[in-house]
Design a protein around this nucleic acid. Sequence first.
DNA 1: TTGTAGGCGTTATCAG
DNA 2: CTGATAACGCCTACAA
Lengths: 328, 328
Amino acid sequence: MSRPTIAAVAQAAGVSVASVSRVLNGLPATEEMAERVQRAVEQLGYVPDSRARSLKVGRTFQLTLAVADVGNPVYVTMMRAVEEVVSAAGYRLVVTTTGADVVDEVALVRGMARGYADGLLISPIRVDEDLVKSIRECGVPVVVAGNVPAKAGVDTVRANSPKGMLLAVDHLVAKGRTHIAFLNGPADTVPGTARAKGFADALKAHDLQPAGETEAADFTFAAGRAVGGEVLRSQPDAVICANDLLAVGLMHELVGAGLRVPEDVAVVGMDDSELAEQSFPPLTSVNLGSAERGRRAAELLLARIEDNDRRPRRIVVQPSLSVRRSTP
Amino acid sequence: MSRPTIAAVAQAAGVSVASVSRVLNGLPATEEMAERVQRAVEQLGYVPDSRARSLKVGRTFQLTLAVADVGNPVYVTMMRAVEEVVSAAGYRLVVTTTGADVVDEVALVRGMARGYADGLLISPIRVDEDLVKSIRECGVPVVVAGNVPAKAGVDTVRANSPKGMLLAVDHLVAKGRTHIAFLNGPADTVPGTARAKGFADALKAHDLQPAGETEAADFTFAAGRAVGGEVLRSQPDAVICANDLLAVGLMHELVGAGLRVPEDVAVVGMDDSELAEQSFPPLTSVNLGSAERGRRAAELLLARIEDNDRRPRRIVVQPSLSVRRSTP
DNA sequence: TTGTAGGCGTTATCAG
DNA sequence: CTGATAACGCCTACAA
């Protein structure tokens, strides 16, 4: 026995399907009509099928946010900002995980195709031709929080991580640290490449040589710990990490090795996520504007849903530095 | 100009809509037929409408997980476990946020009604009659990760937090701590009530008087910090916290007050989330089986989708204690 | 105010 | 193997 449809309700109430639909959607109807319909609905436990409805009206009022790793607190910040904007606009937000693999991302975008949501906000960690292609062919408005080639012709909101890197190095140098190492995530990712280049440029701007450069297997706490020893080999007096999770992982290794933060080694994270505040010592972190990026990206998405012919915008959000106790 | 439909593709390819559908779904077709269809699809940039499809086939192959706060790392653990199970079964998982308010939860369940997903897994933080009612009327299989009355007749997977609380107290007492305080979240929540009772019972079992009991405004880091001073007023030698976020918040206040963890005050969290491992010192935490709860709940959901007439099951997952350095 | 009927885009059945 | 056609469940002119 299947679920009741509007037809069943109409029959039970002894009225037409149109009347049921009207009552349910709050259109004018007799007191008595409304009464009968309501009763029938209650009795049968009728619940409208939203896909049939949206097939008809053309919208789902759902938006999807796709992130690589729900365990990364930077996405929490972004998610909160996005949620706020879209719910104010009357949409529901659903979040889905892509995994770090570009193949998964492509599959997701493909699968998302027209229907489940009115728009997609994706923050890809690896980008290739296929992904760009699938975004264009996806059939639903897409905004990318991250960096894709301008020729992709898609709305993007991205961070300025080289600038952020410079803020971090400026700060460390001002505090007298000059033997600075860099703990990166995978270099074959979009943020990985950008941050590596940013680090090199920032050091150059100060006429400094890098103390060392290490690549972790992932942008995770565990990966940060795993390469902690390697980072320390060059005996840096400061380490900049490509994100907060790596930084916290590293700090655990530092402490384990009997070093003090920040006295012996200063540590700087990136993202300025909730974890930076929660960590001990609280982590100095480059705020790459996750909240603002989320907000602007959401606004872009709403605007594109409104008018799919507007020309793509590329927004860059400027960073700032949140100084906490992990640096002197 | 609207998106191309299957009819447009059929026309462009000079074949019937049925043939287009077949080719797209990999059903037998001539080499040449497939060729023509593919070409037309490419050319028009056709992308199938998934809601029309699911309207027809009756399934979306999407499952929804609803949690109160994406910033709470316990949900990350659960999410990962759920994701693993459902994706192995060929479903995509989407996550949505309810907020702490029961009204929001009800609205979500209502809105989720039949259509957007084939099933709903919800971890409610506050439960009332309305919520139970909306779950029953929701029209799609629902599994609750948490505690709802047995008479609700819904599949549930819940933790045994009194038992977990006992593990924590046992451990502290074994280490010679007897002046134990409790930092709870809001007492009008399901976990709040359960944990408060568990704490009282566990102390009674050891013939101990509570050093103090404090209620934070939320299950968050900030809320934990905010009431840190109050917790310390009774000068406890150990504090058990209702979750890891509260515990980490408290530890920051402890350190700020010049106390050492665990020498002066031992701290125990609950949930054994990723944060417990990441915090410093690493946090001893009651593992309430979030991963297993997620897994079992997902399995229950899949089973119910398969057969909606099976009788509701109520699973209880047993806790364990993860001892780390925040206790002696 | 209410009912009838057509169509949203797809898949599945059933002839050819 | 292919094509026409009837659903899927709902909304909305249009007609009564």
